[in-house]
Write a protein that binds this DNA or RNA. Structure first.
Lengths: 173, 173
DNA sequence: GTCAGATAGTAGGGCATCCGAGCTTTTCTG
DNA sequence: CAGAAAAGCTCGGATGCCCTACTATCTGAC
């Protein structure tokens, strides 16, 4: 899922949008609108970059997150529902993600020992190896955040955590 | 496209991931990883919230952006390709977005006066009215950014612009 | 103990996004 | 000016995300 090629237009369209906003609706709502559009665009760029880095492993960032969640779990196995809760994605999305991870041999579905409703996703050896290698690549690339110093990363987290709170995410201080 | 219901777990899973990261790979890559995961989650929450606000208009945020781009354009019409460049989405995505906007009567495809390869998307009266109403709702809601003061919006933009630059976005100072 | 309600996972449908391929039309080159 | 190259749009396929059912299973109330 590579990102769209850079068009490098001379004017910055997000700044232009903000100018229009102030012109039509005044100064008050413009900062929020600018922040949102900038956030969306930054996310799009980052996601594209990360997916480019992960493509050699036949992974996307969504599937990488599942792998890492299992990687950090004792036994390397978790019920599908638990995965959805942890990553905050819909149960049907988890089914789909696990389908593809299983297809590529990174996880396998295992029956729950006591609850026959539950299916466990268990990391395979290949999955664990790939997770480690992919993480090495991402860490070396600083997750595409190399243009910002570590202090800025902290700033960013503090600001974005406020947004996360409004979505019901538990953000303990 | 409503967001996932809040599960309100006691521990913050993103902070937990960061702790694991520091434990396994040291302090160095952790801030970048934390910033990226937090950004992804904040975007997901914001997008879900905005889509909830726009659902009564039969709009998604992606389609709303198209509408506003045309809204700010003289004549209210633009070639599909131009829309893709401005919003930084793939040409095939533009086709899909315009398909749905046209289905709902918000835009219509018009032949380009001189270039027969080109198709223009032109805002209809209904599209213009809906764009205005939707904007009123979003502005009143501060685009879901009410938890942050305007100064923080500016901070956020400055930080995220650095990320945008790495993606080839023109960010003039 | 039995049956209603909650839980776990999946199938099917819709939207957004990308890519590659293909068609038409325009522009450029020799 | 004719053919090659580029540009503009769309189609089909893939991934990810959501929602609404639906089935199977478990739990709890009576």
């Amino acid at each position: 899922m590579p990102s769209v090629e850079a068009t490098n237009e001379q004017i910055d369209l997000l700044r232009e949008a903000r100018r229009q906003w102030e012109e039509h609706w005044g100064e008050e709502p413009a900062p929020a609108m600018a922040a949102v559009t900038t956030l969306m665009r930054a996310q799009q760029i980052l996601m594209g970059h990360l997916n480019d880095l992960l493509a050699p492993f036949d992974l996307t960032f969504a599937r990488y997150e599942v792998l890492m969640l299992l990687y950090f779990t004792r036994e390397g196995a978790l019920p599908l529902g638990k995965i959805g809760q942890r990553l905050q994605v819909h149960p049907t999305s988890v089914t789909s993600l696990i389908d593809r991870l299983e297809r590529d041999g990174y996880v396998e579905r295992v029956a729950h020992p006591s609850d026959r409703r539950t299916t466990l996703a268990r990391l395979t050896v290949a999955g664990r190896n790939t997770a480690g290698q992919a993480t090495k690549i991402l860490n070396e690339d600083k997750f595409g955040m190399g243009s910002l110093p570590p202090e800025s990363h902290e700033e960013l987290v503090l600001l974005l955590d406020r947004i996360r709170e409004t979505g019901g995410d538990a953000v303990s201080p």
